[in-house]
Amino acid sequence: MQKRATFNNRLLPYLLLTPQLAVTLVFFFWPAGQAVKQSLYLPDPFGLNDVFVGLENFEFLLTDSYYLASFQTTAIFSSLVTLLSMGTALWLAVMADRVIKGSGFYRTLLIWPYAVAPAVAGILWMFLFNPSVGLVAFYLEVFGYDWNHVLNGAEAMGLVVAAASWKQISYNFLFFLAGLQAIPKSVIEAAAIDGAGFWRRFWTIVFPLLSPTTFFLLVVNVVYAFFDTFGVIHTITAGGPRQDTMILVYKVFADGFVGQDLGSSAAQSVILLFVVGILTVVQFKYIERRVHY
């Protein structure tokens, strides 16, 4: 944990810590505290003062059908994004692991979407599927399918899932490829000599040995889908049509800044803080486990 050889100085360590602590207190702890406080207040009918209402904001949220629907939307959205991006990345990584010549070339071409901002990814996919000018929407219509994600909730969900997953493939690919390359080739060759085919080897040897990577990516992808996809939603659907792509993070923004319902938005922030807390604990349990093995 700490070095045995340390320097003796009374003031210096505090001076060194000051910048980080100042930023942390002003921009993390103070706002988080304000969110907790605000979640217990509501403006009075004239909008002049805030009145203490206890847990009323939370009670209201947890019985509000829109909020519960947003939970459900978030669950569907993050499961689909996690499955789609991890599945595609694993498939690509397994293939890239099999080739020897040119794997560096493939890797270079597959990792750069990581650098594309979620909001820009949203613009790209929105352009492809734009009902009036989009290339994919045009050919869908040629084949008799009338695509319009502006009106159709399921299509809107499909589109934000595709854009959000597309951006995350590179990240998952890199970690899966590293995980695959860490599996000793002798184990796989031994199974091959015993006559196990590719799929059998994959499910009985490769996939189980890859499970630490898979579990790690699962947590990272859920966190990504929960919090980092704001830009995708905002550029493609803005939560619509109706509330069909209104994930929790987007609703905090929509209620707080667009709807000016500060009490409710703050209560939602507090609930999200709990979600983050749980995910952090899960991630740490994972890190602990990895240290043991």
Binding site: Q2, R10, L21, Q34, V249, G256, V276
Partner: peptide
């Protein structure tokens, strides 16, 4: 890492707690 001083662990945990507090969840107060 290189100093021993009162409150070291408290400060360490204060920083540590911000590990996963994205700006998205505290937008209005920030």
């Amino acid at each position: 890492v290189y100093f021993r001083f009162p409150g070291r662990m408290v400060f360490f945990w204060l920083i540590f707690m911000t590990l996963m507090l994205p700006v998205e969840v505290r937008i209005v107060p920030t």
